[in-house]
Design a protein around this nucleic acid. Structure first.
Length: 284
DNA sequence: GTACTTGTTGAACG
DNA sequence: TCGTTCAACAAGTA
């Protein structure tokens, strides 16, 4: 499930490889996923990639006047293939499905150097849209602070928690309108790192706990980015890199297993319809 | 066959 | 109006 660190990893890889390459063709295989009209698709052919950026969990391919917006949702996956390398990010790929395109390929972008970007999605939740600079700005404005950005201050987090004081701290963290990019995995991991139980009310946190949480979030995200995210693929790039943060997860997906910080077991409940993991001993 | 998984949207509720 | 909860979407995996 791509969250901020996974999307950041993909963006960094793609920025490096797509920059200044001209988009020479688009093949849409699924109208639900590829949400551009024929005219829009035609309009962007021939435009060079200026940059690849991230906002929240969204990938933005800047083509100058227009921007391709890509959201991977839960099972989206981008695979870039050139003569020199094949790299992928997002949902993990089963080895037997490494043929491209495959039955889950929804869109294919082709570039001037014969390389191609395959957009795959098993469940078809993901999408590709086109946005002008103005539309993109408006979209960005609706999202909360970037947890790795300079606007994510201790004061900002305090204000968020004050506004959402009756909600559980876990649900407050994954609300994209307040903090953007944190999903289920990193919410659980950040709360473990800050030693706070996920079902606590946001308003019940002591000042020192808010501070610990504020420090834990970027720390966990940066560590995850360093290890190229949690749900990375079986593919490797030309340098043989295929890191995964899964080895470093303390609570997510470890229900019933021993806690790594004490003798207790990791517990799991549903909070807001989402699986929530924590250690009852380590977290207060 | 059934339960389970999740990011985002939008409807419903109080 | 506002905050909050919940169903829906989708389909592979256990």
């Amino acid at each position: 499930m791509p969250e901020l660190p996974e999307v950041e990893t993909i963006v960094r890889d793609l920025e490096h490889r797509l920059k200044n390459k001209k988009l020479t063709g688009i093949k849409s295989l699924d109208k639900k996923v590829f949400r551009l009209t024929a005219a829009e698709a035609k309009k962007i052919i021939g435009q060079p990639v200026r940059s690849v950026e991230r906002r929240a969990k969204m990938i933005i391919i800047n083509l100058g006047r227009d921007n391709l917006l890509i959201h991977l949702k839960m099972t989206g996956q981008l695979v870039y293939k050139s003569k020199a390398a094949i790299i992928a990010g997002g949902h993990p790929i089963k080895l037997e499905r490494q043929d491209l395109p495959n039955k889950f390929t929804r869109v294919i972008f082709k570039f001037s150097d014969q390389s191609a970007l395959y957009f795959n999605d098993v469940r078809r939740f993901a999408w590709v849209k086109l946005a002008s600079a103005a539309e993109l700005a408006s979209l960005k404005g609706k999202l909360g602070a970037e947890p790795l950005g300079s606007d994510f201050t201790l004061d900002y987090l305090k204000k968020v928690l004050a506004r959402k004081r009756k909600t559980t701290i876990k649900q407050a963290l994954i609300d994209q309108k307040f903090i953007s990019g944190i999903g289920n995995i990193y919410a659980d991991e950040s709360l473990f790192a800050a030693r706070i139980k996920p079902m606590r009310r946001a308003g019940s946190l002591e000042p020192n706990e808010v501070k610990k949480l504020w420090q834990a979030i970027p720390k966990i995200l940066r560590l995850a980015i360093k290890h190229r995210g949690t749900s990375f693929s079986d593919y490797v790039d030309a340098r043989g890199q295929a890191g995964n943060f899964i080895k470093y997860l303390k609570v997510y997906g470890r229900a019933g297993q021993p806690c790594q910080g004490c003798a207790g077991l990791v517990k799991k409940i549903k909070l807001g319809g989402r699986g929530t993991h924590w250690c009852d001993e380590c977290q207060k």
